[in-house]
Design a protein around this nucleic acid. Structure first.
Lengths: 226, 226
DNA sequence: CGGTTATTTGACGGGTATCAAACACCGTGG
DNA sequence: CCACGGTGTTTGATACCCGTCAAATAACCG
């Protein structure tokens, strides 16, 4: 039940681009559409990993849980991104929880089908390696931020990421709940809220999910001096 | 100038085990031995990535640097482990600094040779994917620890890792400087020192690099309740 | 409009970084 | 053999930041 739009997204994904029509078809054959409501779980930590995923619309967060119920957000995936490629090489079990942040539609791709394809077409292996290298990079950046930056710096860094600009004024909407963002940044919601409030004096205005930055460059400058 | 011991280690590595003699030979041909003195740098962040590495003896730490000179340790690699496989898929540049923790001998393997080999033998691609999946797992675990555990819990968790036992009494030596360990755990040396001192009341005795734990299980129990 | 879920704001205490100094350890050179 | 500087570690005092708890407020949805 994949629409043509779904197929197009598959064909454009970092993981599968470069695949010819026939190979793609074979993969699609073993794929299924999955719909999740907000807060619904895709898989649990420890579940056998039979599928990897492409987010079509919505957002999926990967988390780890502590005994006390607290959760640590490892990453949030956006439409067009694939995840859980690594699971098939890690003892065949998912090492994290996956939950829908908003209503989500995604494509589940068979592990074994992909595996078979890699054996035939080594180029795909490169795509997988590239994809995983990307994830590695993200995680390293995250560790770096947690260890080297103060709370305020992390918030600024996050805002600058969202801007997608290096200068001038910018406006954008936050990608999700402030509580979730706070978790991504390794702080409590209250702390995040206060940090944002403090940034008012640096030209950051927040209204609901709407954020406007007066001067991106000026904001970036604070990272260096503070 | 690879000794037979070196070759044996290559053949046993997660990355290259399963390679037949001929393929291994071709790879060895493009490899070189590198010796580093303690604190000497292997490569810098941003350097073009032409080699990936196998640690033969010694230890290599991967770090990120902040403007103020502080560094964040991403990982420390031990003999038998390979690293920097991912670099060839990330724009061809190393994303971190690599420095010898102690006097170190390692083997540098040519990126392009390995690449050629993958195209011929897709099984090697699986080995690379598995190796990178392993690194991903480590990083995820690290992020989890930083976000979910208190300082004391991280120290305990680290000690338990080093024990390699789940019960009874244990003795071992710390893998390196306490300052480096503190950095790995995301805290300052002073904090680490105090944390260790506190653990005396839970049966942990530290003398230089020598550590002895009276009852591993009892120590593990603190993680849950605290 | 009422009930639930987000977010903000305040007061407070604890934990960690910071600064500083004492101390232990080690190899070197006198 | 001892003095010595360098490095690594411990210990202490202090300040500040963040987490926690609590309540108020705002936004949202049926």
């Amino acid at each position: 039940v994949l629409t043509t739009t779904d197929r197009a997204m598959l064909a454009r994904s970092t993981l599968l681009k470069g695949l010819d029509a026939a190979d793609l078809e074979q993969l699609v054959d073993g794929s299924s559409i999955i719909r999740l409501a907000r807060h619904q779980q895709l898989f649990a930590q420890g579940d056998p990993a039979r599928l990897l995923f492409l987010v079509v619309e919505g957002q999926i967060k990967l988390t780890r849980l502590a005994r006390d119920g607290n959760e640590a957000v490892v990453h949030v995936f956006e439409p067009g991104e694939t995840f859980a490629e690594a699971a098939m090489f890690m003892g065949g079990r998912y090492p994290v929880w996956a939950t829908a942040v908003t209503d989500t539609r995604l494509i589940g791709i068979s592990n074994t089908r992909l595996r078979d394809l890699v054996l035939i077409k080594p180029e795909i292996a490169f795509a997988m390696l590239a994809s995983m290298a990307q994830h590695l990079k993200h995680l390293v950046a995250q560790i770096e931020q947690m260890k080297l930056l103060t709370t305020k710096q992390r918030v600024i860094s996050f805002l600058l990421d969202q801007c997608g600009q290096t200068e001038g004024a910018a406006t954008f909407v936050l990608p999700h709940d402030k509580a979730l963002i706070a978790n991504r940044l390794g702080m409590k919601p209250e702390t995040f809220s206060r940090a944002l409030a403090q940034l008012a004096e640096h030209g950051v205005r927040v209204n609901g999910g709407q954020v406007s930055v007066r001067d991106v460059m000026q904001l970036a400058a604070i990272l260096t001096e503070e």
